[in-house]
């Protein structure tokens, strides 16, 4: 592999990792706090992509407005789902939530078909980001560069929010002991609603940011959900920087693995997870949980 190729692959791996991190960080947040295995997260991602399509292409709004619309759209959908339905399930059998999110997937997939039909769509690159930057020995596409900037920004913003604010302390406490938190007078249901909304909005942003570089088709939700779970798990459950690290591992393994061993590309993420879990059963930055 020449230096040019290596640089390019490393760069692409990073860009992929950042796009995936944005989506997976939302799942990590929801999973870490609510302990809900949200099958519908991939569907939220798809809705994010479809919403930016409608806002930018059909209504002609600027790209940034589209991204915000996707975030807002998913926040509204998620809040409605949480307040009307999901909140009644927290005290029930844990796994029934999985059945619940499966029902949501079915309903949302049909809703997407009713709203957007079954055509395939494409979203253009935002102005000024559709070309490539020439570094002399290598060409780097601007949009992927943009993703490499946005990903860490979101990570830092989330870190500040969760690690440096009172609200963040409450959220972290909720991952540890929800009963105790409630006894201390914290309105736990509102914390849950906020976390679910925020995590889902991140899926919307991730979908919106992915939209310019992929085709928008029904079924685009299918593989993304597994990949997000893989990232969250290999990073360590509920750990923000773990997910960041997990996304980086995912991005580089998929990019370099596909170049070097194309025959294995279908199962690369699973091989990565297998390797991590056998060596570190609680993920890269996770900690063993006692007796749960």
């Amino acid at each position: 592999m020449t230096l040019t190729m290596f640089t390019l692959n490393a760069f692409y791996g990073l860009a992929l990792a950042m796009n995936m991190f944005i989506i997976a960080s939302g799942l990590n947040l929801i999973f870490g706090v609510l302990r809900v295995i949200n099958f519908a997260h991939g569907m939220f991602y798809m809705f994010g992509a479809y919403i930016i399509f409608t806002v930018t292409k059909t209504w002609g709004a600027p790209f940034l407005v589209g991204v915000l619309a996707s975030a807002a759209g998913l926040a509204v959908i998620a809040l409605a789902i949480e307040r009307l339905l999901l909140k009644n399930l927290y005290d029930k059998e844990h796994l029934m939530q999985l059945l619940f999110t499966f029902a949501i997937v079915l309903l949302m997939s049909d809703a997407a078909k009713m709203i957007w039909g079954t055509d395939q769509y494409s979203v253009g690159y935002p102005p000024g980001l559709g070309g490539a930057i020439n570094l002399g020995f290598v060409l780097l596409p601007q949009y992927q560069l943009f993703l490499c900037v946005v990903g860490p920004l979101i990570a830092i913003a989330m870190w500040l929010l969760v690690d440096r604010t009172r609200w963040g302390r409450i959220v972290r406490a909720a991952t540890q002991d929800r009963e105790m938190l409630s006894a201390l007078g914290v309105n736990v249901p509102m914390v849950y609603a906020a976390v679910f909304t925020m995590g889902s909005a991140l899926a919307g942003i991730g979908g919106a940011l992915a939209a310019p570089r992929v085709a928008l088709v029904p079924g685009m939700d299918a593989t993304i959900i597994n990949e997000c779970f893989i990232i969250v798990i290999i990073g360590g459950l509920g750990n923000l920087w773990g997910s960041f690290l997990g996304a980086l591992a995912f991005g580089f393994v998929v990019q370099f693995g596909t170049v070097l061993a194309p025959n294995w590309q279908d199962v690369l993420p699973y091989l990565l997870m297998l390797a991590v879990l056998i060596v570190r059963p609680w993920g890269l930055l996770g900690r063993p949980e006692a007796g749960r």
């Binding site: 999973f31 295995i37 597994n226 779970f229 893989i230 798990i233 459950l237 025959n263 294995w264 279908d266 199962v267 699973y270 091989l271 997870m273 297998l274 879990l277 056998i278 059963p281 609680w282 993920g283 949980e289 749960r292």
Partner: peptide
């Protein structure tokens, strides 16, 4: 043998990883 060393969601995800390898073998 490998999976039972883990619990909860980690257990579940490891079973998923192995299952997808089986899928990969059937595919290739």
């Amino acid at each position: 043998y490998f999976c039972v060393r883990l619990t909860q969601i980690y257990f579940a995800m490891l079973t998923l990883a192995f299952a997808m390898l089986v899928w990969g073998v059937a595919f290739k």
